[in-house]
Write a protein that binds this DNA or RNA. Structure first.
Length: 206
DNA sequence: AATGTACACAACCGCAACACG
DNA sequence: ACGTGTTGCGGTTGTGTACAT
């Protein structure tokens, strides 16, 4: 087994889980590096954080995905691309890792979607940053990642500019009905990313 | 029963952004 | 303004297991 940076890649033991859980119950989340040092865990802080967020946290739902969850993920992915944390935020009890795994192992095959290749089309993480990204992208048509909006002569009103990476799928066209279908159930929330997307679609439409 | 293979999921990595002194 | 430590993200890879041969 490979050992890097003094840490092994291995599954968490019951004891390690217990130590981590006790620490979070006492000290709260955060300071993951300190936890690893103080409790003598041979894990890096990032590993501790991931274990808590993806598995030990009481808010994490375990077990099979329901059809409703699958459907939600598919629709969100259609709209947002590989923005797993944002998608996971709208699938109650599921983490970004779970959603990502679900997509990669089940849903992409089910839909016959090829895995993205080539240069990544990574969008900044936070909502506000993403909103700025969208704004910037459409103010600067020469941007390497985002094509300028085409003229709307074919019923296309929006583009999935957040796509998973390859040029082939990064700008998947969304028809009017696609967009409305996707957006209708999403805009009950107040996510600024989706608000930005809504503005984009209005811009396209107008 | 032993071995090989495919699949699902857990865990790690690199990077970028953020927080704070 | 800068440096350092921390957090969060998406992509990738290792591990365990079910199934086939």
């Amino acid at each position: 087994m490979e050992v890097r940076n003094g840490y092994k890649k291995r599954l968490w033991t019951v004891d390690e889980d217990r130590i981590l859980t006790e620490y979070v119950q006492l000290q709260g989340k955060g300071k993951w590096n300190r936890l690893a040092r103080e409790r003598g865990l041979r894990r890096c802080g990032k590993s501790c954080r991931l274990r808590w967020m993806n598995y030990l946290s009481p808010s994490v739902k375990h077990g099979d995905f329901s059809e409703e969850e699958d459907d939600l993920i598919i629709r969100l992915h259609n709209l947002l691309g590989n923005r797993w944390s944002l998608i996971a935020g709208r699938v109650p009890g599921r983490t970004d890792n779970q959603v990502k795994n679900r997509w990669n192992t089940h849903l992409s095959k089910k839909l016959g979607v090829s895995q993205p290749k080539g240069p990544k089309c990574k969008v900044s993480a936070t909502s506000s940053r993403f909103s700025r990204h969208l704004e910037h992208s459409f103010n600067t048509p020469s941007s390497s990642n985002v094509k300028p909006p085409p003229s709307s002569t074919d019923g296309t009103i929006g583009y999935n500019v957040l796509g998973g990476g390859s040029d082939d799928n990064a700008f998947e066209e969304l028809t009017m009905s696609d967009c409305y279908q996707n957006l209708a159930f999403l805009f009950s929330g107040d996510d600024p990313d989706l608000y930005a997307m809504n503005n984009l679609l209005e811009f396209q439409d107008g």
